[in-house]
Simulated assay, not measured.
Amino acid sequence: MKYSLLILTLLLTFSMANAQKIYSVDYENQADVKVFVVDYANQADLKVFKVKYQNQAGKNNGKWFFTKYANQAEKKIFFVKYQNQADLKIFFVDYKNQAGWQKNFKKSLLY
């Protein structure tokens, strides 16, 4: 019993630590990062793929899982209206293998 409980705890810990969990806030002052969604992939700092389940998300590689509650997220973001207000420009992609950083110098925003 103790052995199976230990394995379950380790599995849950590693799956949670691996996720890039994001929450979209309603107000700019609540956000860790201000984000703008661009129209074309070549304009983006990061190409993002939205995953359906937390265990599918990656560690700062563009695979995001949007949480339902702010306290579950690693980073809180706010979507701004204008590009010049943003800390990070993103583009949502259709396939998981398209996700990733275009400009590595902005990676530190999501650590």
Results as ranks from 00 to 15, higher is better:
75 K>M: 05
70 A>G: 04
61 N>S: 13
76 K>P: 12
78 F>E: 04
74 E>R: 14
73 A>H: 11
60 N>V: 04
72 Q>E: 15
71 N>Q: 06
83 Q>R: 15
71 N>S: 08
76 K>I: 05
81 K>H: 09
85 Q>A: 12
67 T>P: 06
79 F>R: 04
65 F>P: 09
68 K>R: 06
60 N>W: 02
87 D>N: 15
64 W>K: 00
61 N>K: 14
64 W>I: 05
64 W>S: 00
84 N>T: 11
60 N>Y: 06
90 I>A: 02
78 F>T: 04
92 F>H: 02
78 F>A: 02
86 A>F: 09
73 A>P: 15
84 N>V: 10
64 W>N: 00
88 L>S: 12
85 Q>M: 12
60 N>Q: 10
86 A>L: 08
65 F>S: 00
83 Q>W: 07
73 A>I: 10
80 V>Q: 11
75 K>A: 02
63 K>L: 14
62 G>S: 08
90 I>G: 01
65 F>R: 06
89 K>T: 04
94 D>Y: 04
71 N>I: 03
94 D>Q: 13
69 Y>V: 04
93 V>F: 03
80 V>G: 08
65 F>Y: 15
82 Y>G: 05
94 D>L: 08
61 N>P: 02
61 N>A: 06
62 G>V: 02
83 Q>T: 11
81 K>R: 10
87 D>H: 13
61 N>L: 06
66 F>H: 02
69 Y>A: 03
84 N>R: 13
63 K>W: 11
62 G>I: 02
69 Y>L: 09
67 T>Q: 02
92 F>M: 02
61 N>V: 08
63 K>G: 01
88 L>R: 12
